[in-house]
């Protein structure tokens, strides 16, 4: 595939990625794959149809694989597709599947929400992870799906409706004020919280190559500060023994290990080892002069060249003691 010169890595971004991927071959593989479009993963919406029935329908028009036997809902369409073909298929319009990149499915697999639990999705739009969680919960329990802006809420609600999600209450609040007011009023605490934080998007280069143009280190620092605030407030509305998954679609350590390290140093939490169906690399222990908490190695870095996916970061916390 020819490279588009407008979308080359900025020198500072390239330098940072070389630090993260010190082996030349590894970095070269990364540099190559980010210029290739992503694979066509879809997730069967088990609220409406079983993976077997969906597979039967889709196999009449496309070649479809089930690459992970433990997760039959994850499907990979290997046929050459016309632009928009997945989104225009009848099965998509009927909400039988959700077009979702494989790495982005990892947050909910890590969260592992159960039917009848009370779950908060703090930054929920566009709804890929909320619909995945609702399906895992068999439309039972309750999900509070929150986002900040009305236009994002509209996209979220369209996706929730298309997927037949009925166990969700959609709220429009700033993440901090949401957690803060729930905490102050002693509202029921959450069993599980997903904080898929707004991030610099370095992991989405294959589907959004323009991210390379917009990349800016100042933004990373600003986002890192915001992410720390979000996670600090999120822990306050989690019940003792509850689970919080923090994820981003970026490689920037300031937005990943630095946030996790901040959480480990300031809150009564422990980090859990993840078992995901993609190749994970351990979190890094140091970035520039900053040394992180030793347990950040239990976090999961997903690189596109390891899995033929987008890039992602996932971590999972357990709250040891409720925060008063």
């Amino acid at each position: 595939m020819t490279k588009n010169p407008r979308y080359q890595m900025k020198p500072l971004f390239e330098q940072r990625m070389q630090t993260l991927l010190p082996e030349k071959k590894d970095f070269d593989n990364f540099s190559k794959i980010i210029h290739q479009g992503p694979e066509n993963f879809i997730r069967c919406n088990t609220i409406k149809i079983s993976p077997e029935k969906l597979l039967e329908k889709l196999e009449s028009k496309w070649q479809v694989k089930q690459p992970f036997p433990k997760f039959p809902e994850i499907l990979l369409v290997t046929s050459d597709l016309k632009p928009g073909e997945l989104g225009n298929a009848l099965e998509h319009l009927l909400g039988y599947y959700y077009i979702q990149e494989i790495s982005s499915m990892m947050s909910v697999l890590a969260l592992d929400p159960q039917p009848d639990e009370f779950v908060l999705d703090i930054c929920a739009s566009p709804g890929s992870k909320t619909t995945q969680a609702a399906a895992k919960m068999q439309n039972k329990g309750t999900i509070i799906a929150n986002d900040l802006k009305l236009d994002r809420i509209k996209i979220l609600s369209t996706n929730l409706e298309r997927c037949g999600v009925t166990n969700t209450i959609t709220t429009r609040n700033d993440a901090i004020s949401l957690c803060s007011s729930l905490k102050k009023s002693n509202f029921r605490k959450f069993d599980r919280i997903l904080l898929d934080a707004p991030c610099s998007g370095e992991g989405t280069l294959r589907s959004s190559p323009k991210t390379l143009l917009m990349w800016n280190q100042k933004v990373i620092k600003k986002l890192s500060r915001q992410q720390k605030k979000f996670i600090a407030f999120a822990f306050k509305c989690l019940k003792e023994g509850g689970t919080l998954v923090y994820s981003t679609c970026t490689h920037a350590p300031e937005e990943n290990e630095e946030v996790v390290s901040f959480a480990l140093e300031n809150f009564p939490v422990k980090i859990e080892t993840l078992s995901l169906p993609l190749k994970c690399r351990e979190g890094i222990s140091q970035w520039k002069e900053k040394k992180f908490h030793k347990d950040v190695e239990k976090t999961c870095r997903i690189y596109p060249q390891d899995n033929n996916s987008e890039g992602f970061f996932v971590s999972k916390f357990k709250l040891v003691e409720e925060i008063a």
């Binding site: 009370f118 309750t142 809420i153 209450i169 709220t171 429009r172 729930l182 509202f187």
Partner: peptide, 21 residues
């Protein structure tokens, strides 16, 4: 709505947060 929150809890939540749907 198929969720587990009671009517009272939904009403309380509406006092505390901005419920859209």
């Amino acid at each position: 709505f198929s969720g587990s929150l009671s009517k009272e809890e939904i009403s309380d939540l509406a006092q505390l947060t901005n419920i859209e749907l």
